[in-house]
Each structure stands twice: as structure tokens, then as C-alpha cells.
Design a protein around this nucleic acid. Structure first.
Lengths: 138, 138
DNA sequence: GCTTGTTCCTGTAGTAGCTACAGATAATAC
DNA sequence: GTATTATCTGTAGCTACTACAGGAACAAGC
């Protein structure tokens, strides 16, 4: 299988496949006499693994760690640790974003909208510090 | 005020201040005879504005738009539009992250942990496609 | 054998938003 | 006069790709 077919079958862009190889996430495949990359099914399932990890928000560094575990005889505990650590990061991102959402909602709620040549959002951005908790004095 | 003082007073790194200038987000300040940047209070409050926008997750492009509005005589409606559009992006990021959180939670929940040399997370990553909704057939 | 079209190759530069240097000057302290 | 600090410019690095440019390989048609 050449790179175009692999790309179509996995949904990973050709450039990204080559990038993963260069970045050391995927191994260097053998080449044809003409110098073209030749892939087998094992490579394909490994690439799909990488793709799913990325869809789940793991960084390439995380993926490298996971693959090392996969190759080096992992234990369930090690994999679980990485997964839970990643989940924690995501949870804290959610917390941050929810705070932003709230703040933006409050800002926009004060707007009259329309052609009014003055806006409480701008005023707030120029004056108000971002509130980190509910109990701080204004 | 020189760049070090401005940095301390606003909490924006020196390199970031210079970067904003280069990126066209902040204007070029006048210089001293020795070639050093000299800032006034107006510059400082504009920089704080930029900082708060960034803390609220606006991109530098968004910030540029907001500043154009500020400079060019904005209307409340225009600012509100930008704010609400940004809020929408954040809401959809939250939705995505929540789905990831759920998926990761389910994966890790199947783990026995410890030294078991096999892990359902790895199995799932190698086999299971990511579910985009509850109503899709496996 | 020749041409055309597609696929593939390498290498480089661009994206966002900084951060981190290197090496050179300016200003201040003593 | 010297030591230290602050600032200057310019470049490279970070993540995870994407988008080229310019060239070579391969398949198909005539």
C-alpha cells in the first residue's frame, strides 16, 4: 500500500503521515525500488491508533508515551495513569472555559446593541479586571 | 515609562509587548535619544485592554478588530456581535471537551489498574472508533 | 518511444502567540 | 573607568500540522 491509499483508508492527510514519520511518532516504512513508501496493515492500525489518540486530545508527546508502552509491554496501571492525567487536564480546561463563557455572557447581557455609540463591553474591558472568584471586591 | 516598568505594571512580558508592537496590535511608541521605547498611560491602558481580551480567549485578530472599533467609533451592536460570536466558539469547545471527558472516563473506568499486562484503554484505542453521538450503531 | 496525467518525493516556509536566546548598545552605580 | 543592569535587534524554537515548489516515478494511451 502506498501513501495515498493509506491516507484514504485512515483519513489521515498524506503530509500528516509524513510528518508523523519525521516526528518519530510513526516508524520509517520500507521503500519501493523507486523510493516510494510501502505500508502494511500493521502500520495502518498503528496510524489509526495515533489518529484516535489525537481525536481524544492527547498530544503527540502523550501518543509517543502510549506507543512506547504498547511496544514495551505496558501495564494497565501505566496506561490508566496517562489517561486519567489527560482527563484531568481536560476537566480543568472545561472549568476555565465555563468561567469565560459566564463572563462573556454577563458582558454581552449589559449591551443594548444596535447603533448606540457606546458599549458596556468596551468599558468593562478597559476597566474591569477579570474576576477569578465570586467573593472578590470590585 | 520604559518597557520594564510597563511590563511590571501590566503583567505583560517585555518580549510580548515588543511582539504586540511588531504584530500591529499595539502602536509604535516614541523613542528616547538612546533608542529606547517610551510609553505613556494611554499606551498602558490600551495594553491592559489587550491583556484582558487575551485572558478572555479572544484571538489577536479579534483584538485587532475590537481595537479598530474602539478607535473608529464603534457601536454597541458591533462589539456585542464579536463578543457573542466568541462566546459561541467557547460554548462549542466546552461541548467538545465534555465529550472527550466522558469518553476518557469510560475508557479508564474499565481498567483494573496495577500491573496487569493488558489494558482495555489500549484495546479500545486500537479498535473502537470515537463515538460522535449516542445514536450511532457500533 | 513519446506524451500526458497522476502520484509521489524532498525540502522549505507558513500558521498562532508567544518565549528564549545571542550579541550589541545605553544607562546607572560606584 | 568599570561593573551591572536594562534595553536593543534579530533569529530560532515551540505544537501540530498545512501548503507550497520543483523534481522524479509510474500508468495509460497512441
Amino acid at each position: 500500500m502506498q501513501i495515498g491509499a493509506l491516507s484514504k483508508e485512515t483519513g489521515v492527510h498524506i503530509e500528516t503521515i509524513r510528518y508523523y514519520e519525521k516526528a518519530g511518532v510513526m516508524p520509517k516504512p520500507p521503500r519501493s525500488s523507486g523510493g516510494r513508501r510501502l505500508y502494511d496493515d500493521e502500520y495502518k492500525s498503528r496510524l489509526s491508533f495515533v489518529k484516535r489518540c489525537r481525536e481524544l486530545g492527547f498530544s503527540l508527546d502523550d501518543v509517543r508515551s502510549l506507543l512506547e508502552l504498547v511496544d514495551g509491554g505496558y501495564t494497565c496501571g501505566e496506561v490508566q495513569d496517562l489517561t486519567l492525567a489527560h482527563q484531568q487536564e481536560i476537566k480543568s480546561k472545561i472549568t476555565d472555559l465555563r468561567r469565560l463563557d459566564k463572563t462573556l455572557g454577563k458582558l454581552a447581557a449589559n449591551c443594548e446593541g444596535g447603533d448606540t455609540p457606546d458599549c458596556p463591553v468596551i468599558d468593562a474591558l478597559f476597566v474591569t479586571p477579570i474576576k477569578r472568584s465570586r467573593n472578590q471586591p470590585g
